[in-house]
Design a protein around this nucleic acid. Structure first.
Lengths: 209, 209
DNA sequence: TAGATTGTTAATCGATTAACAATC
DNA sequence: TAGATTGTTAATCGATTAACAATC
């Protein structure tokens, strides 16, 4: 197996998709799959699957195929799904509420607290997560030391919050704002969800022709 | 300018990001930018910018640079942001509510109605959008003929709804479910937002090393 | 004119696919 | 053993970068 850090971004992007399809097969009671059969289901080439699996350090059995349960468990480990990482939610508006209500049991995260500046929300809970005053975030982070922040706030307030969090040692972000964290903090670990960009791509697809 | 349909996916993915950075420059009052200066701001190479712009059919002036307002307006046209496309929202839960509350004025869409199966939601409104009974969707679509559906429902109910919509002529989807529309309906225009996949990638980034 | 910067061609790099020997 | 399928190497394809002539 290659060093994990050698995985290219193209590889990483496909990893969760493999996990999803293999979970489905597992639920269906399948425990043996060939690269050709999986390729058919996923709409990719069997070559790519074998190449990817080889990069991921996953092996099958020649003449037989791969074990679904084994693939699942190894991809789960690779993705770090079994290590619960603590997160805080910044912004308890519409997006924040939706994010708070996702299920995190099987995804390696746990939201410990939420923060908002809206006084009317403070003290309430979403999905069992207490909403605290954003002004208390420095104090909270110093004590609780969350590993990661889910950034569900508008772009204009993002730079300030990110700076504060980063200086307190929070360097991983699930970023729903348009603020470009990586260009400012190159060593931060960031996964962006840009709903606006996604929608514009749909607009493009619908407009052409 | 090349035929629009010749744009590769790598090109399309970058298009909204250019739009965002150029909007920012425009707000700052800049109306002249060189590929080198834009590259610096966006953290990419100037070669890529010139190549992309050339693919997009955008031109500058040799020895001078590009006009921000001109780029913005042409990328806006390319993305189809000025043609309002009608959409319906399927699912008025947490994600659906968040999606209903996004601003669509400048993104080329308008949500005409929302649908849910939860009787307690029916008749209410989110952000001025009426929530209708999901069982009336066939009738609604036949009359209103929306161009696009925003799919904010769990995966298990997605296949059935997509089939119904597709057969009624709705072939464009902003898909928040994990149901793989493209493999079933190859001519559908689909933009996926897979929050689970995104979170797993973050988990991967945080787990390695 | 001289300097700057585009637009384009060619070179490089990386990712995907094809082929097939290894082997279960 | 024969058939199936992996694992890997080589070939192809596409995307990114570098270079520079064209030209404002």
């Amino acid at each position: 197996m290659k060093d994990k850090s050698e995985l290219s971004y193209s590889n990483i992007v496909r990893l969760p998709r493999y996990y999803r399809f293999l979970s489905m097969l597992s639920k269906q009671g399948k425990d043996k799959i060939s690269s050709a059969a999986l390729a058919e289901i996923m709409g990719v080439t069997s070559s790519q699957i074998r190449q990817d699996f080889s990069c991921f350090g996953l092996s099958g059995q020649q003449g037989y195929g791969y074990s679904v349960s084994q693939l699942l468990s190894e991809i789960g480990i690779l993705l770090g799904l079994s290590e619960k990482k603590s997160a805080i939610l910044i912004g308890a508006g519409n997006i924040g509420t939706a994010v708070a209500n996702l299920s995190y049991d099987d995804k390696g995260f746990e939201i410990k607290a939420a923060f908002d500046k809206d006084k009317s929300l403070i003290g309430k809970s979403i999905n069992g997560i207490r909403i605290l005053d954003i002004s208390s975030i420095g104090e909270y982070v110093k004590n609780a030391i969350p590993e990661c922040a889910f950034l569900c706030i508008p772009e204009d307030s993002a730079p300030e919050i990110v700076r504060e969090l980063y200086e307190l040692g929070v360097k991983c972000f699930w970023n729903f704002s348009h603020y470009d964290i990586k260009t400012e903090y190159t060593d931060a670990k960031v996964e962006n969800v840009h709903l606006g960009d996604s929608l514009m791509r749909l607009s493009y697809l619908m407009s052409k022709q």
